[in-house]
Design a protein around this nucleic acid. Structure first.
Length: 171
DNA sequence: TTAGTGATATCC
DNA sequence: GATATCACTAAA
């Protein structure tokens, strides 16, 4: 029943992809063969150079290069030296867009999610639709979505801080 | 509320 | 080479 998401899913605008990703299942196969599954409960959209909350707004750098690259690429970012945050690149090539996977249903919180799944910097730049040990499934579940302003980007200024590009599955 | 953490970027 | 920054969490 569960279908692996294809690259086409990520080739649309981030504002279409981000809400649809909520309710999907993030799957991860560990080295010993164990498969972990975590329902995505919360995502955030980061879109374009004009979005002051987006890393790419500061210009194209080695770190943000991936945001401009191909859809379906995993962008893993180490925050505060402690937490790995996981994004998936969306949209047309050349357009810096990405969806931040903020939380799973069980393990709420960006840092916790990646810690549970064992995701770290070695996943940066890999493709989520053609990897044997990490992928996203659609099992038909469609939660009700609520939107909210993004968090953790107070530096982005009033307008971008308040844009409701955070998507949460309603309980 | 505050401390801790380390890769990246931006200055010398 | 040296700082400053940061899409967070845990502890208090």
């Amino acid at each position: 029943m569960a279908e692996k998401l294809s690259e086409d899913f990520f080739k649309r605008d981030v504002l279409e992809v981000a809400p649809e990703l909520v309710g999907k299942v993030l799957a991860r196969r560990l080295e010993d063969g164990t498969v972990l599954r975590e329902r995505i409960a919360e995502t955030e959209a980061y879109r374009g150079e004009e979005d002051k909350g987006c890393h790419a707004s500061k210009g194209r750098t080695k770190r943000t290069e991936l945001l401009y690259g191909e859809s379906g690429v995993i962008y893993v970012y180490l925050c505060y030296g402690v937490h790995w945050l996981m994004n998936v690149i969306t949209g047309r090539n050349g357009q810096p867009q990405g969806v931040l996977l903020r939380a799973g249903k069980v393990h709420g919180g960006p840092g916790k999610l990646t810690k549970y799944l064992g995701v770290d910097g070695s996943f940066n730049g890999r493709r989520i639709c053609s990897e044997p040990d990490i992928w996203i499934e659609d099992d038909g579940y469609r939660p009700e979505i609520v939107t909210a302003p993004r968090v953790g980007i107070d530096y982005a200024g009033e307008y971008w801080r308040d844009v409701p590009w955070r998507f949460i599955a309603k309980e």
